[in-house]
Amino acid sequence: MAGYFSTFLVILTLGSGLIWLVDHFMFAPKRKERIALAQVSSGVELDQEAIEKIAPLPAITESAISIFPMIAAITIFRSFIFEPFQIPSGSMMPTLLVGDFILVQKFTYGIKDPVWRTQLVEMDEPKRGDITVFKYPLDTNVDFIKRVVGLPGDTVVYRNKQLYIKPSCEVDEKQTAGLKCGEFNKVGLSIVNEDEFSMQGMPLPRLTESLSGIEHDILINPMALETKGRYFQQPGTKVDEWRVPADSYFLMGDNRDNSADGRFWGFVPKENLVGKAVFIWMSFEFDNTPDDFLPGWIPTGVRFNRLGSIQ
């Protein structure tokens, strides 16, 4: 849907801009000539009403001239600088909640054209711990948001609720901060609390995970079985092990037992990256139940304490 909207914005911008240009260079001079001749013939200065009758501005041209600056600004801002997204599910809890509205920095991983998504300018590479919006590899019309766990060349293992990373020794040392290259590193976990979140009455422990020096919180469900039978199986690896190909990334949700992430569909190619989630600009609560008078999509409150930078 976001891809269709981007294409619509570009078409609207180009269309209104083209109408404005054609009018500016072809029809506007002719209107000025008619007005000037009428003014000379009448011998008095014409008022606006008379001018509009002598040289009327077509409605489509007037509309294009009015909306072009605004639409062009929105297209540039949304395509190359920041794009708003809404969090639709709990797969990134506790970091991002349903009802959070976030800004995604589009230029972090490079500047791309908004229609064909061709890389125009190279920028930074994704880092472990980045929360990234990307085009879902199985359906690029859908946007997903997850956390970068594995970089190109890494081997990632997720076993018994524990993450292990074996970074390649051929990458920049900055990308392996806190990890020993060529061997599996057990990613550090520490308990925060056990009763803040729950699912179907089951408490979900909240843990702090230290990923290459980047600390963030995750949720696990101790009673949930690992559905390894549904895992993406990469040739030559164990069922819960993945080797990240070149120019690809392995991403996981922070709500580890309620996230359809790279464990189930594989890797995200670099060209699928949309940008880095950097800011929560609004956060609504949706507490209406089927028995309530108001529908569930109407907010019941605002979580002002959640507004700010995303960790």
Results as ranks from 00 to 15, higher is better:
Glu196Thr: 15
Val244Ser: 01
Pro94Gly: 10
Val268Asp: 01
His216Gln: 02
Met202Lys: 12
Phe264Val: 12
Arg78Cys: 15
Glu173Pro: 14
Lys161Leu: 04
Arg263Ser: 07
Ala246Met: 05
Ala55Pro: 02
Lys106His: 01
Ser212Ala: 06
Ile145Cys: 02
Lys228Gly: 11
Met202Glu: 12
Arg263Ala: 04
Ile191Leu: 15
Thr118Lys: 11
Thr75Tyr: 06
Ile76Gly: 09
Asp100Gln: 06
Gly275Phe: 01
Arg31Cys: 00
Lys127Cys: 09
Glu173Tyr: 11
Ser63Tyr: 14
Pro203Lys: 00
Pro94Asn: 08
Trp20Gly: 09
Leu96Asn: 04
Gly301Asp: 02
Gly236Leu: 03
Ile11Cys: 10
Asn185Lys: 02
Glu122Ala: 07
Gly153Ile: 07
Ala246Leu: 06
Met26Phe: 11
Ser210Asn: 04
Val187Phe: 00
Pro205His: 02
Ser42Trp: 09
Met282Thr: 08
Gly266Pro: 12
Ile102Lys: 03
Tyr4Gly: 14
Pro114Ala: 09
Ala50Ile: 13
Tyr136Asn: 08
Asn221Met: 11
Tyr136Thr: 06
Asp143Trp: 07
Ser190Pro: 04
Gln233Val: 15
Thr132Lys: 06
Phe284Leu: 13
Pro290Glu: 03
Gly129Thr: 00
Asp23Glu: 01
Asp257Phe: 02
Pro94His: 07
Tyr158Gln: 10
Leu219Glu: 05
Pro203Gly: 05
Asn185Trp: 05
Pro203Leu: 03
Pro94Ile: 04
Glu271Val: 11
Lys186Gly: 00
Glu170Asp: 14
Tyr231Thr: 13
Asp287Pro: 08
Leu138Ala: 15
Glu209Lys: 01
Ile19Thr: 14
Ile54Ala: 10
Met223Asn: 12
Ala28Asn: 12
Phe134Gly: 03
Ser309His: 07
Asn272Thr: 11
Phe267Thr: 05
Leu179Glu: 03
Ile165Ser: 00
Glu83Ile: 13
Gly229Trp: 00
Phe27Leu: 12
Phe8Trp: 11
Asn288His: 15
Val133Asp: 11
Val133Lys: 08
Gly213Ser: 04
Pro235Gly: 04
Ala2Leu: 12
Ser6Gly: 10
Val148Asn: 05
Pro94Thr: 05
Val104Arg: 05
Ile19Gln: 06
